[in-house]
């Protein structure tokens, strides 16, 4: 079973790798690039929200911090646009993670809704600081990032592969965490934090790590995003819509699963970019987005992947039942076994 899954994933990865060579159209690769980036963000967000049960609506702050780290590093060390700038991504991720440590220590003192609200405050403090620390961020004027030398349709390709690499990295981490003892501890915290602490799990450290790891990935995603855009401004770096996007994608795909947030990210961001490119109307996009979110939460509160899984397993159960009733010999056999077991006890 896992071999089949691995083969499928390998096939998907191969398709993703050759994708820009099959569809060289700049619009298609642009949509694909954004879809991969947002899938990465949702996958990272899911490590904290899905496994640990702490719904942060402020992690987009680390996306912004990563972006500003990229802009400031490029400016201070006069780094030219090109492949070299991609080497800065881990540095930007580490800077974002470094910010996440004290912020995590403060916000994780609270739980549930107070935590959600504190993380929202964290996002807005970040935005206000980006607006006001003129010496560092140039405030509302924004900053210019170095211009990559690639022209036309070729511009998207390096970014596409960077986003793909980030997605693979984040998904592998997410998969590893879910399978590890560490991940089990996180899920224990999600289910009952006090009991988890009682069982000897260092909940403080586990939660902090689950808070900082997504910040690392989001910092790298932010750096890639704003390197691609060529400029960064506070309202786009610290955007509450990005937090909502990560939550929406994770919830619609299936919170707490490895594949769900990725699927949600690819589908929703792909559709949204497509709408934005074809219709290009601001108000409509907000209404569509909000309505879609409402529909998903009210109709499929457990997400696409868990809902489909539930339908699939109930279908298999039904089929098994039908097979069982279709062959009475087997049924009576198992009945006989049941009786035998009952008597032997």
């Amino acid at each position: 079973m896992t071999a089949i899954k691995l083969a499928l994933l390998g096939l998907l990865l191969a398709v993703a790798i050759v994708f820009p060579h099959l569809f060289g159209n700049a619009t298609v690769t642009l949509v694909a690039f954004f879809a991969l980036l947002y899938a990465t963000m949702a996958s990272a967000w899911n490590i904290l929200a899905g496994y640990t049960g702490y719904y942060s609506l402020g992690h987009a702050a680390f996306f912004g911090i990563g972006g500003y780290a990229m802009a400031i590093l490029c400016q201070d060390y006069t780094i030219q646009g090109g492949y070299g700038a991609f080497y800065l991504l881990p540095v930007c991720g580490l800077i974002a993670a470094a910010f996440a440590v004290p912020l995590g220590i403060i916000t994780l003192r609270t739980r549930r809704h107070v935590f959600v609200v504190l993380t929202i405050a964290m996002l807005f403090i970040g935005q206000l600081l980006a607006f006001n620390l003129l010496g560092l961020t140039s405030g509302s004027n924004g900053m210019i990032l170095p211009l990559p030398p690639w022209i036309g349709a070729a511009y998207n390709i390096p970014f596409y592969y960077t986003a793909l690499a980030l997605l693979v990295l984040t998904m592998s981490t997410s998969f590893w965490i879910r399978r590890s003892r560490f991940g089990l501890s996180l899920m224990a915290i999600r289910d009952d934090e006090d009991r988890a602490a009682g069982l000897g799990i260092n909940t403080w450290l586990h939660k902090l790590i689950a808070f900082v790891v997504p910040a690392f990935f989001l910092g790298m995603v932010g750096a890639t995003y704003f390197y691609f855009q060529g400029q960064i401004e506070p309202q786009f770096a610290f955007n509450p819509l990005d937090d909502l996007a990560m939550a929406l994608m994770s919830f619609s795909g299936g919170l707490g699963t490895v594949l769900g947030p990725v699927l949600g990210g690819l589908l929703i961001e792909g559709a949204q970019q497509y709408f934005a490119l074809t219709s290009g109307v601001g108000g409509n996009y907000l209404i569509l987005y909000g309505a879609l979110f409402l529909a998903v939460i009210l109709l499929m509160p457990r997400g696409i992947i868990p809902t489909i899984a539930a339908i699939w397993s109930s279908y298999r159960e039904k089929r098994n039942d039908q097979q069982a009733s279709a062959s009475p010999g087997e049924a009576s056999n198992s009945e006989a076994l049941g009786v035998a077991e009952g008597t032997s006890r």
């Binding site: 719904y55 549930r112 409509n284 907000l286 909000g290």
Partner: peptide, 21 residues
């Protein structure tokens, strides 16, 4: 509580979009 935050956030977006139009 958590789902109400998500649902009302979506409501806020729809209201913002309608007011903008």
């Amino acid at each position: 509580t958590v789902f109400s935050i998500l649902v009302t956030f979506a409501i806020a977006l729809v209201i913002e979009g309608i007011l903008g139009k």
